[in-house]
């Protein structure tokens, strides 16, 4: 594991740095979708949130490390190695179901979250119904009497047009947390 396959650094891929190229109306629809998703999470409507996932979704969050400057390209663990999330639809479904057992003590009593979504940029793909969408998030959480923390990062999504209330499904999501060592007690939400 010390020598992971080198993958282009997630933040520096040319296709992600390229100027956004979706039409204004599409950009608006994509942004509204991400805001709606955030609202469902903050409202504890996790089953509705799960319904926004495509059946073939891959929800993945790699671990990051402090590396020497010359090894900076290796600061994120590649797919198939260290990750905080590495989920398919069924696995996400288990996590959602857990929150409704009333015995998931990290969320029972429930924490209060606010998913703030910003810096949304979107690109077209070869498939006219699919868009690559990047967005930043700040998840602010309070729990118990006086616990509070923030988890901040960026998401790289593949959104697919879908026949549902919100118009899209999440076909693929990579979550990159802006922390190497996580300075929070757990990751009990979705990001």
């Amino acid at each position: 594991m010390n020598k992971p396959t080198r993958v282009p650094h997630l933040f520096r891929r040319p296709e992600q740095l390229a100027p956004a190229d979706v039409p204004m109306e599409t950009a608006y629809q994509l942004e509204q979708f991400l805001y709606a998703e955030a609202e469902l999470l903050d409202a504890w409507q996790f089953n509705d949130w799960l319904a926004l996932m495509a059946p073939d979704v891959h929800y993945w969050a790699p671990v990051r490390e402090n590396r020497l400057a010359r090894e900076a390209e290796q600061e994120m663990y590649p797919p198939g190695t260290a990750a905080h999330f590495d989920e398919n639809f069924k696995m996400l479904g288990q996590r959602v179901a857990r929150l409704y057992t009333h015995m998931s003590w990290s969320e029972s009593p429930a924490s209060r979250t606010r998913h703030l979504i910003s810096n949304v940029r979107a690109h077209v793909t070869d498939n006219p119904d699919e868009f690559r969408v990047q967005s930043s998030f700040h998840v602010y959480r309070t729990s118990s009497e006086r616990h509070q923390d923030s988890v901040i990062g960026r998401r790289y999504d593949l959104l697919r047009r879908a026949d549902n209330d919100y118009g899209f499904q999440i076909a693929d999501r990579t979550v990159v947390f802006d922390m190497s060592m996580l300075l929070v007690k757990n990751l009990s939400s979705f990001y």
Partner: peptide, 8 residues
């Protein structure tokens, strides 16, 4: 080793 996590 196949994975690592560090948190506070």
């Amino acid at each position: 080793v196949v994975g690592v996590h560090k948190w506070v």
